[in-house]
């Protein structure tokens, strides 16, 4: 096996803007000027509260966004150098499930109830590979074994309702991995599962990623999942990426007050607390966003300019970016100090 060139960019999202037309006539800017990239074989976590636009971003990459009411108003999504937004629906269907696949949050409803899991697995294999029914069946059994389902040759004839949530999520992962995708998008794949099963599914995903040499875009709101799985983290708030850094850097040196607050919500074994900390306030609705920094109303460090002026994306170091006025202050101070030294 030749090594994966992790320097090579696999997915590059640039200045993506997504609007939703609401029933009351208002426009909701659900995703606003989002840019990020994923390298081959990399695991990137996209973190944020519900309503921050992370699921919408992933559906846009899959081109599964309901249009209307959704609309991609600006930006590009380059995958291996080609803009996915330029593809016709039919062309895109050859990418989906083949080069990019997805595992969803809700395993209980994500499979078709009236077909066997074997049928649903095999149809995916046969859609993208020219193989006989028999070969597809063998491949399907092999995949089920790979995701840790015992008696795979019998389980292939089971219907989704005969399986538990954890088992169904294993089947979903098998389907997603069936054609060795270069990118797997996992949208909160463990949120709906029992805590004991969560760890198993996470381990399974990391194992499958390694064996199938895929990159993963991991969407979650759980910082402990991020710590366990990701190489790099992007923190999303109210439709914008507010901070992006390698996982160690982000945990040790968070720059954005929102990231700091998120990290504080993680329960720790060392400290004894009666109540888990939470971030006061709620994410502003996407149709009524503040003029200035979107986190300002909940930010304890908010300054005057935060209320009126949207912060730009600033570079902390080569791999660490942040969208916050506080950091621009620090930067200026650093320049000033440098100046006084010379």
């Amino acid at each position: 096996m030749e090594p994966i060139n992790t320097q090579q960019v696999l997915l590059e999202v640039s200045n993506l803007k997504i609007q939703f037309q609401l029933k009351n006539g208002k426009q909701a800017k659900v995703v606003d000027d989002v840019s990020f990239s994923i390298h081959k074989g990399e695991t990137v976590a996209l973190v944020g509260e519900s309503g921050s636009g992370k699921s919408i971003t992933s559906l846009a990459i899959m081109r599964l966004l309901p249009i209307p009411p959704g609309e991609i108003t600006a930006g590009t999504i380059h995958f291996n150098g080609n803009n996915l937004l330029d593809y016709k629906n039919k062309e895109m269907s050859h990418i989906r499930g083949n080069d990019i696949s997805m595992v969803f949050q809700e395993p209980m409803t994500s499979l078709d109830p009236v077909f066997t899991i074997g049928n649903q697995l095999m149809e995916s294999i046969r859609r993208h590979r020219k193989v006989s029914k028999k070969e597809a069946r063998e491949k399907a059994i092999h995949l089920l074994q790979e995701v840790g389902i015992a008696n795979a040759d019998k389980m292939i004839a089971e219907y989704p309702h005969q399986l538990s949530g954890g088992m169904r999520q294993r089947v979903m992962i098998a389907i997603a991995m069936a054609n060795n995708p270069q990118l797997l998008i996992a949208d909160e794949p463990t949120t709906a599962l029992d805590v004991t099963v969560q760890a198993q599914i996470l381990n399974l995903m990391m194992k499958m990623k390694k064996e199938h040499r895929s990159a993963i875009l991991f969407i979650t709101h759980d910082m402990s999942v991020v710590a366990e799985t990701a190489d790099r983290v992007m923190v999303m708030y109210a439709g914008q990426i507010v901070e992006e850094a390698p996982v160690r850097e982000l945990f040790l040196n968070p720059q954005h007050p929102y990231t700091t607050a998120l990290l504080k919500t993680m329960p720790s074994l060392d400290t004894d607390v009666e109540r888990l900390p939470s971030i006061p306030g709620i994410v502003p609705p996407a149709y009524a966003l503040p003029d200035g920094c979107r986190f300002a109303p909940r930010c304890q460090f908010a300054m005057e300019q935060c209320q009126t002026l949207q912060p730009e994306v600033l570079t902390v170091n080569e791999a660490h970016k942040v969208r916050c006025h506080l950091f621009s202050g620090k930067e200026e101070r650093a320049y000033a100090e440098e100046g006084s030294l010379t």
Partner: peptide, 29 residues
């Protein structure tokens, strides 16, 4: 509008497959 339809689309299945295999059989109930 159910979740499983989104899953089938995410597998890259054709519109005919989505409508005439999965949605039709489920709707027949």
């Amino acid at each position: 509008q159910l979740d499983y339809v989104r899953t089938i689309r995410s597998k890259g299945m054709s519109e005919q497959n989505v409508m005439y295999k999965h949605v039709l059989k489920n709707s027949m109930i």
